[in-house]
Design a protein around this nucleic acid. Structure first.
Lengths: 204, 204, 204, 204
DNA sequence: AATGAATGAGCATTCATTCAT
DNA sequence: AATGAATGAATGCTCATTCAT
């Protein structure tokens, strides 16, 4: 008697269309019309499945945060040591080719800009940032501990790694032409390693 | 005797107003009306001094790039050694309190997002990035040379430093609440130092 | 054995839901969706039982006209004299507490506004008005006749009574705060009585 | 150097266009486009002179309230006695031909309906109603006093007169066909007079 | 009978830009 | 130089109605 709902699938399609549209032209220019066109739907239908444009954006932020997390788990599966896991994390987010698509990276940069001015976006953006911070701090602390180093500095180092990554996304999206090729993952890994190696040993 | 043109002053005022407006609400919401209000001018006058909104934005990018350069020269004035100069550079851009205002940082983040999608903005943005890259590569190469290290890796290290800075701006603007306090300048300096220290010596 | 149609019940539910919706937000804002929600039905079903939104409105006008008539019969049941019947009529429509619910009154006001501009609504609205006019003219004529007065002026007096009632509904719905408390039924009755008393006697 | 503002004139034109549009099709159907067309302007210009559609409506309510007041003053100019002033008031609002235009009356009815559901409209509507109440109470009290009657009942009588008027507007707009011709002003005056005449004398 | 997805026209509002003054 | 009115093309969103299931 009743029809089966296809809302979940439609929502996924629409969020994907926003990702594509936002990567190309930013959030403001990613109009409902443009999103609908990319998804092969009509504009009215977008608002049948989402209350507002902002709701789609917030869904996209959550989707990308989730995606980032899952990518790490994939990359980390074969990793045995803390150092390998850290490298898996860095590669999952930065390694050329294996990293996320250019569109995803550009969309994330646009989301970052929206987070500056839209409180509701900032909220979910901060949740994603906090999750990344927690994960990288844990990985860095494990590396430090393994080498008998104090782990107190892990939080700041994690923040630095995250800043590096966000900046790398920004520059890859807007200034790839003037940046050295493929510096990101390798340099990030080296910076972390050398920092950790130079850290003084913990007292017994 | 003809009246002296006040165009240069007006242009400066307008660019400053765009900086303030863009920091608060992003480029799209920084309407001509809002810019005019912040500058204490009327909307029609904006288009007397600038051909288009984009032209103001491009002027702003150049202004900020210039400002960044001048700040380094100020900070570096008392610096004697390469290492002191590098630290001056890092502090000029990142040090809490001494760094640029929150509005300037937020505006720069917004500009970065616009650079992703507007070719004309990207062009001047890339010029600014290239200038920063050249400066930091030079400073890093000097540090390496001073310690008898190979300078071949300076370009990649400079790219990493720049990525870190851009990311730090992004996170300071959109996720200050979840980031550690005051990590940026100190951690950047340490990362650079330890990387350089661990670099192998150059062959004779 | 075929299933029994529940159309009549559904139509009643839907008309009741329109009454509630229209009282709150007016006809335009009483969307099919809102009506469905109030009736606990789905939007599609509304158009299964009614061809259009206007058809529901027209049904509502008829329902309210019917309701008004029945209320008079209820109130007039114990009335013996013409004057008591007139008072029963006035109380049935205006008396505080015993009168119709605030929602019904507000809905009637909204219907009156729709009748100004929608010919099909005006038609049924006028039928309702004509019925009220006829009833009150009859009641007033009986009062006049009982006192040996000419009944020629009954039509105009009936029109005045109806105008008073419609206006009282309007003011009760939109300006209750600035109107005296409970003036309506008592003043209406007094106005009618004093008018009738002052009417000259009919010639033999 | 500076241009002379024509905003006041434009606002008046726009409010007049809303009056015409609302009388024909109600507030919801009086679209910005329709208002602009009636005023011979472009839709964008409407929002240059008014912040929102609601602001135009509120201006219209105030304009009509003002207009009503001025009409009374005009009609009352030659009136000498309290009874003549009361009659002037009734005629100013109700007398056929001399009364307000059908469009104005219909617009007022639509405004009354909007006042039921829009708080901001209700506020100015109530102000207008309160002013009318105060004026008619004063006029009625003067009539009562002149005849040595108690004036205590003036407030309720004023409310009744106002209700009658509002209802007369409603019925004139939506049910003129079924109402007696020209009953309004004459019957209102008679109702008031007979009520006052029948009022008991005040004690010495 | 009933569901809920889908459509498409229409809405108020925004805004860069133009232009007469 | 400066003003502020004017334009017209968007934009996000709403909603009665249709229809496959």
């Amino acid at each position: 008697m009743s029809r089966k709902s296809n809302t979940e699938q439609r929502r996924t399609e629409i969020v994907g269309a926003l990702l594509a549209a936002i990567a190309e032209n930013g959030y403001e220019k990613a109009t409902i019309h443009a999103i609908a066109a990319k998804a092969g739907l009509t504009p009215g239908l977008i608002h049948y499945h989402f209350q507002s444009k902002k709701e789609i954006l917030i869904d996209l932020v959550k989707t990308l945060a989730n995606y980032s997390c899952e990518r790490y788990l994939q990359f980390a599966a074969p990793a045995a040591t803390p150092r390998e896991k850290l490298r898996a994390y860095i590669d999952a987010r930065l390694a050329k080719g294996s990293g996320a698509s250019a569109a995803t990276v550009a969309a994330w940069v646009m989301i970052g800009a929206e987070a500056v001015r839209q409180p509701e976006v900032r909220e979910v953006y901060q949740e994603a940032v906090a999750a990344e911070l927690a994960l990288s701090r844990e990985l860095l602390a494990a590396c430090l501990a393994e080498q008998g180093k104090k782990t107190r500095g892990a939080a700041q180092l994690a923040a630095a790694l995250l800043a590096f990554m966000e900046g790398a996304f920004q520059l890859a999206s807007a200034a790839a032409d003037v940046m050295p090729q493929g510096y990101a993952a390798a340099t990030a890994a080296q910076l972390m390693e050398r920092f950790i190696d130079a850290e003084p040993a913990a007292r017994k």
